[in-house]
């Protein structure tokens, strides 16, 4: 008798979550200059987006940064997860703790601490500083994804490999990597998205020589309503939707 109530509630919340996004997408095809009134269908904002050189460059920079940050954090994250899973070593808890701190501490704290480090050590603010920072905040997510995969994994396989005389490296390459492959891909995609979306950390550790998309959007959005932002937002939405479906697909397929 009260079954419809919870369902209606769910629908309502989903509506609230999706209305702003829907409006954004619809208005990205709006011909009118003002962000509020409908002036007919048009692709002009997509056009003006791609005619904006600074924007296109920021887009490439962002993609490249996300690509490299995701890759590096996947490699290091996977190795960390393997180390945590397989090796006994002193300070394991400390290592775990540090990863936990990165994941839980407010982004802004991570941002200023990295800024302080880069200035002290003399790392130029630009691509390198951004890469180091992005890898750092993506790392725990990759570790967790891979650890989850490893925890359900049959320990006898690596043992057998070792008994057959495989070195640690060979065993990792031939036995473990294939097993954690889906987790690696999922972790990579997560890292890619996190990097592409980050505003807080990037605000602090970027330099003028390497402008990235979120910061460009930030300055555009602060200036006022710009229909180009709708177009850009729609593109990003489609892009992350594809990424997300890809990662879900990989994860569910690997479970079977």
């Amino acid at each position: 008798m009260t079954r419809w109530l919870p369902r209606a509630y769910l629908v309502l919340v989903y509506l609230l979550l999706y209305i702003p996004i829907g409006v954004l997408v619809v208005f990205s095809f709006n011909d009118s200059r003002s962000g509020y009134t409908w002036g007919g269908l048009s692709l002009r904002w997509y056009q003006s987006l791609f005619n904006n050189n600074a924007m296109v460059e920021a887009m490439w920079n962002s993609l490249w940064l996300a690509l490299s940050a995701a890759t590096v954090s996947t490699v290091i994250g996977a190795l960390t997860a393997l180390a945590l899973h397989r090796y006994r070593f002193r300070g394991k808890k400390v290592l775990n703790g540090m990863l936990f701190v990165v994941m839980m501490s407010p982004e802004i704290v991570l941002a200023i601490s990295l800024l302080a480090l880069f200035l002290l050590v003399g790392i130029q603010l630009g691509y390198v500083s951004l890469l180091l920072a992005h890898v750092t905040f993506c790392l725990p997510f990759v570790v967790i994804t891979v650890m989850a995969r490893l925890s359900g994994f049959d320990e006898s396989l690596p043992e057998a490999a070792r008994d057959l005389g495989a070195s640690d490296f060979t065993m990792t390459r031939t036995v473990l990597i294939p097993v954690i492959m889906p987790a690696l891909l999922a972790g990579w995609l997560l890292g890619f998205t996190l990097s592409l979306d980050d505003v807080v950390v990037s605000t602090f550790v970027s330099g003028p020589s390497y402008e990235i998309l979120p910061l460009r959007i930030y300055s555009m959005v602060r200036v006022g309503l710009k229909p180009e932002v709708n177009a850009l937002g729609t593109l990003l939405l489609v892009f992350s939707l594809v990424m997300l479906m890809l990662s879900q697909w990989i994860l569910t397929r690997s479970k079977r």
Binding site: V23, L24, V199
Partner: peptide
Amino acid sequence: LLIFLLIVPFWTNSLVRTYALKMLLATNGL
């Protein structure tokens, strides 16, 4: 499926989503 739908927005650029809210809340907004 619903959990998936819940995290889709989370994967979308947060600045862009904030900006979308601005379009709704403005005096001339929707």
